Simulated scan of single mutants.
Amino acid sequence: MTRAGRHGDIGHAIQALRAIVTRELLKFWQQKARLVSALVRPVLWLAVFAAGFRNVFGVAIIEPYDTYIPYDVYIAPGLIGMVLLFNGMQSSLAMVYDREMGLMRLLLTAPLPRWWLLLSKMFATALLSLVQVLAFVAVAAMLGTTLPMAPLALLHALFATLASALMLASLGLLLSVYVRQLENFAGTMNFVIFPMYFLSTALYPLWKLEESGATWVYRVAQFNPFTHAVEWIRFALYDKDPGSAPMVVLGTLLVCFMLACRGYDPQRGFGGLTQRGAA
């Protein structure tokens, strides 16, 4: 292949990425109620749940904190994770809808590598997640929940949030392979979203689970990739070492994306699923 040909292929790939991201952003802009609905859930938890349990759940001085903190500050990273989780799963719903309408088949027939098209969809989902997270952080600040603002820590937290958004977007991409109809999405809510969120450190630290005797919950939370996403964001905000959390998040991202690419291969997964769904 000539150098001009390679440059043309790269330019075509970037143009496709820009087109997919622009489409998702425009669709999001036209659905302003979507931003409101994305913020209602975490803001309700922050304003009502955290206020009600502020004096019930004391958070001790443990890493990454250097002093006692109010409960709303503790759950803020978990609520950021909630925004990422629900948007990642909503992207799965959107892809199932696009598949039923035939839009996914049209997209995947473009003269570009299938993995690049799926990566573009995943990146668009992660970008929308970041927009929603920034809106939530702004609302949380207006409600009096202040997070650390050190420049390096914020950059680290932004990277951790982006990586977590990509991980959850890749999980949504993988789920869209197996959720054949929109009616089945309620099962995804019950068996994926809620267990991932409640069996994590989003609402309570791991040591409290172990101390209370909830051993099995403690063990499951340790292996839950969403726990590591929340902990990475939490430690990044305080510029502390997140330990193995980045490796777990990035490893889960890679595995889910590879399985999704395999599932969307017409010879293996996607084509068969589409034919069976249409039968």
Rank of each mutant, 00 (worst) to 15 (best):
A165W: 03
A157S: 09
A19Q: 08
M104F: 06
L134F: 13
L162K: 01
G243K: 04
S200Y: 13
Q15M: 10
A33F: 12
Y204N: 05
A278L: 14
L209H: 09
C261Y: 08
V40T: 01
L203G: 04
L171C: 11
M82F: 15
L203H: 05
P148T: 06
T125D: 15
L206F: 01
G187M: 04
G269C: 07
W207Y: 12
R262N: 02
L152W: 14
N184H: 15
I62Y: 11
L46F: 00
L175Q: 07
G272M: 07
G52W: 07
T274G: 12
G271S: 03
D98A: 15
A19T: 12
V56Q: 13
N184R: 15
Q222V: 04
G187H: 06
A221N: 09
G269Y: 04
K27R: 15
P205T: 03
S91D: 13
V248W: 14
A214L: 15
K121H: 14
C261N: 12
L107M: 13
F226V: 07
L106T: 11
G271C: 03
F198I: 15
V96A: 00
P42W: 09
W216A: 12
I69F: 07
A165T: 00
L209A: 06
L154H: 06
T22G: 05
R276V: 14
F136Q: 02
F136I: 09
I233K: 12
D239T: 02
A141H: 13
V96N: 07
R105E: 14
L259E: 01
R234K: 08
F28N: 02
V59H: 08
L254V: 14
V59M: 13
G102M: 07
S200V: 14
V220F: 13
G269I: 03
W115M: 10
R114G: 00
N190C: 08
A38V: 01
D265W: 04
G11Q: 08
F28R: 06
M196D: 06
P77W: 10
E24W: 08
D265R: 10
M142K: 08
M142T: 11
L155K: 09
T201S: 12
R3N: 05
F86N: 06
P70G: 10
R41C: 02
F86I: 11
P64D: 09
V220T: 09
V220G: 10
M189C: 06
L175W: 11
A229R: 03
S129G: 12
S164H: 05
W216M: 14
G144C: 04
